[in-house]
Design a protein around this nucleic acid. Structure first.
Lengths: 132, 132
DNA sequence: CTCTGTGCAAAGCGTTTGCAAACGA
DNA sequence: TCGTTTGCAAACGCTTTGCACAGAG
C-alpha cells in the first residue's frame, strides 16, 4: 500500500523514510526501534538512528502509529488500526494481534472502580503455536 | 508488616534497605524507581540509586515484586500478589488495582490464536473519581 | 521560497558495572 | 569467616538535541 495520503491525513510531510517506515510496519506488523533501523538501513544506507527516533516520535504523537509496551521486553510499534489486543510469544518474541470483545470487561471495571475508562491495553504472554 | 520472612522465602538476604523497599511498596502500592529513591533517601540519606536498581532487579527476578508497564508512562513496581489488573489515571497518574475475572477472555483468546497463554496483563487508562 | 526533515556528532539521561568497605548469616 | 550487599564513581546504551544541508510543499 502507498501511505502518502495517510501520512498527509496525519499532518505529516511525506518523505521516503516515512513511507518506508509505514511499509515496514505494514509488512512486519510489529517492530522494535532497532529492527526498524536495520530494515531501513537496507533501503537508505546512510539513514541515521536519529531519523528513526524523530519520525517514530512524531508519528506516535500524530497517532499514525502506536507504541505497544510488552512485559519484560522492548516496546514494539505498529500502524494505528482498530483497537485490539496482543499476544506475545515468550520464546520467539513474535507479537500477534487479536481482536476480542472487551466491552463487558470495561463495564465491569467501570462499575467496580468509578474510573471513567478511556483505553484498554491487553497483552497476553505465552507460547505461540510454532514454538510449542 | 515485617517482610523479613517473605524476603527469606524469596531467597533474598534481609537488609534494612530491602525491608524499607517492601514497606514503601506496601504503603504506596505502586512506585516508580525515582519515587522509591526519594522515599528511601529519607530513611537512608546516603543510599545510592544503584542500590535501588540492584534490589529492584533482584527482587523482580525472584518474583518478590513485579514491574507494571504503563502506556506512555514510567513503569511502576508493586509487591507480588494475586493476579490482578490495573487502572491508571491519565491526570494524576495514580495506579489502582482491580480484580477482574479474565478466564472467559483467556479461553476465547486461546481458541482464536492457538497460543498457550500463560500470563495476562491488562491496563485501563482513564480518569479516576477524584480527577473527574 | 520557506519550512521541515535528514544525517551526523555531541549531549543527555536512565541504568548497569566494578570495586573497596560494610554487613548478613 | 565467607559470600553478599552497599555506596560511589565510572561506564554504558538508548534517546534526544543542535546544526548545516537537502528536500517537500
Amino acid at each position: 500500500m502507498n501511505y502518502t495520503q495517510q501520512l498527509r491525513d496525519h499532518h505529516l510531510k511525506v518523505t521516503p523514510q516515512r513511507l518506508e517506515i509505514a511499509q515496514a510496519l505494514e509488512h512486519y506488523g510489529h517492530l522494535t526501534i532497532d529492527t526498524l533501523y536495520t530494515i531501513l538501513k537496507k533501503k537508505f544506507d546512510s539513514i541515521s538512528l536519529a531519523t528513526i527516533y524523530k519520525n517514530i516520535n512524531l508519528m506516535t504523537q500524530n497517532a499514525f502509529i502506536q507504541e505497544v509496551k510488552i512485559p519484560q521486553a522492548k516496546s514494539v510499534y505498529e500502524l494505528t488500526k482498530a483497537s485490539h489486543s496482543h499476544l506475545v510469544c515468550d520464546k520467539c518474541h513474535q507479537v500477534e494481534d487479536i481482536t476480542l470483545d472487551l466491552s463487558m470487561l470495561v463495564i465491569q471495571a467501570s462499575k467496580t472502580s468509578e474510573f471513567q475508562i478511556e483505553k484498554t491495553s491487553l497483552v497476553f504472554n505465552g507460547i505461540c503455536s510454532k514454538c510449542q
